[in-house]
Structures are given as structure tokens and as C-alpha cells.
């Protein structure tokens, strides 16, 4: 079972986590046109690469960010949301 590094609880088996998808900043709903909004709601960065993802350590209900290569499953780093950085 894959190990996920939780910034609070350390390396834990993936079974303790819930995957929350890619981090997708919400555009200003009052400023964007309908197409942009629909694209935000439905579209995804489907192609593989290093992505910032939400993961939640379920026993502690801790949400955090994982930088992971979705092609190789390699995890670069993880951190809490308020330490969010750009990649």
C-alpha cells in the first residue's frame, strides 16, 4: 500500500486518506463569463504531470496539499494549504 506523507501525521498508508482531486482555484464567479465558469466546474487537467492535489488524512480530518507526478505516482512533497506554493 502506497505511503502518503501527511504534514501532521507523517508517512501513512494511502488507505488512511481520501483523495480530493487537483487543486483548482475558483475564478471569481461574479467576474467570469458562463463558459469560463462551466470550464472551471467541469474541466480537469486530465493529462499527466506533477500536480498539486488535495488529500485528507481521514482519521485526523487533515486536508493538505501533495505534489505528485500522476504519471509515475512519485510524490515530490506535501504541505498544509496555508503553506501553498507555486510549482
Amino acid at each position: 500500500m502506497k505511503l502518503i506523507p501527511c504534514p501532521i501525521n507523517g508517512l501513512r498508508p494511502v488507505g488512511e486518506f481520501v483523495y480530493g482531486g487537483e487543486v483548482r482555484p475558483m475564478p471569481d464567479p461574479n467576474a467570469v463569463d458562463d463558459d469560463t465558469w462551466a470550464s472551471y466546474v467541469f474541466n480537469r487537467t486530465g493529462a499527466p504531470g506533477v500536480k498539486q492535489e488535495w488529500w485528507c488524512h481521514s482519521p485526523s480530518n487533515t486536508w493538505f496539499i501533495v505534489e505528485r507526478n500522476t504519471l509515475t505516482d512519485e510524490i515530490m512533497q506535501s504541505y498544509l494549504y496555508d503553506e501553498m506554493r507555486t510549482i
Partner: peptide, 10 residues
């Protein structure tokens, strides 16, 4: 509960 926690994390 989990999703609410995430929203407030943001």
C-alpha cells in the same frame, strides 16, 4: 463534514 472542512481550509 470533510468537504466543509476543506472549504474552510481555503
Amino acid at each position: 463534514h470533510r468537504e466543509l472542512t476543506r472549504w474552510n481550509t481555503i
